[in-house]
Computed example of a mutant assay.
Amino acid sequence: NNNNNNNIVTGLSVRSLFDLFLLSKSYPKGSEIIVVPPITIQGMIDIMHFHDIKVVPVDIMAPPSQDDGYSIGVDLNAVKARITDRTVAIMVVHVFGMVTTLDQQMVDMRTLSDQFGLDVIEDCAECYSGLSSSSSSSVRSYCGNSNADISFFSFGTIKTSTALGGGVAIVRDPNNNDTSVPLSSSCDKTRKHWKPAAVMAEDMKRLQYSLFGQQSNREYLWKVLKAIIIRCVAHSPLLCGICYLLLTCLGLDFDAIVTSAIR
Score class of each variant (00 low, 15 high):
214 Q>K: 15
62 A>C: 02
23 L>P: 00
260 S>Q: 15
193 H>A: 05
147 N>F: 10
242 I>V: 09
90 I>V: 11
52 D>N: 13
86 R>C: 00
167 G>I: 10
45 I>R: 05
223 K>T: 03
163 A>P: 07
155 F>H: 12
247 L>S: 06
142 Y>I: 13
219 E>D: 13
43 G>E: 14
72 I>Y: 07
143 C>T: 13
158 I>V: 12
210 S>Y: 09
96 F>I: 04
193 H>D: 02
91 M>T: 08
260 S>P: 05
50 F>C: 09
94 H>N: 14
206 R>D: 07
18 F>Q: 03
57 P>F: 08
102 L>D: 01
215 Q>K: 13
207 L>G: 15
166 G>H: 07
172 R>D: 06
117 G>H: 00
63 P>G: 03
157 T>C: 11
41 I>V: 13
255 D>K: 06
93 V>C: 03
197 A>I: 00
172 R>Q: 09
198 A>Q: 12
180 S>R: 07
130 G>D: 03
9 V>T: 01
146 S>L: 12
154 S>L: 10
23 L>R: 14
154 S>G: 15
157 T>R: 09
178 D>Q: 14
148 A>W: 04
33 I>P: 04
207 L>T: 06
1 N>A: 05
159 K>L: 09
69 G>D: 07
194 W>Y: 15
100 T>K: 13
173 D>Y: 10
29 K>S: 11
7 N>K: 01
135 S>P: 02
106 M>H: 05
148 A>D: 02
61 M>R: 14
152 F>P: 10
201 A>T: 08
51 H>D: 01
93 V>N: 02
32 E>T: 00
63 P>M: 08
172 R>W: 13
78 A>D: 09
261 A>P: 11
193 H>N: 10
159 K>N: 13
127 C>N: 15
6 N>P: 02
252 L>D: 10
229 I>E: 11
92 V>G: 03
99 V>L: 08
174 P>H: 07
4 N>A: 11
103 D>G: 00
150 I>S: 06
107 V>N: 10
145 N>P: 02
50 F>S: 15
212 F>H: 12
101 T>S: 09
8 I>Q: 09
227 A>W: 11
141 S>Y: 11
75 D>I: 05
135 S>N: 07
173 D>A: 01
229 I>R: 07
36 V>A: 15
134 S>R: 06
8 I>C: 08
101 T>R: 05
204 M>I: 04
212 F>T: 01
71 S>I: 04
143 C>R: 05
136 S>F: 11
149 D>Q: 01
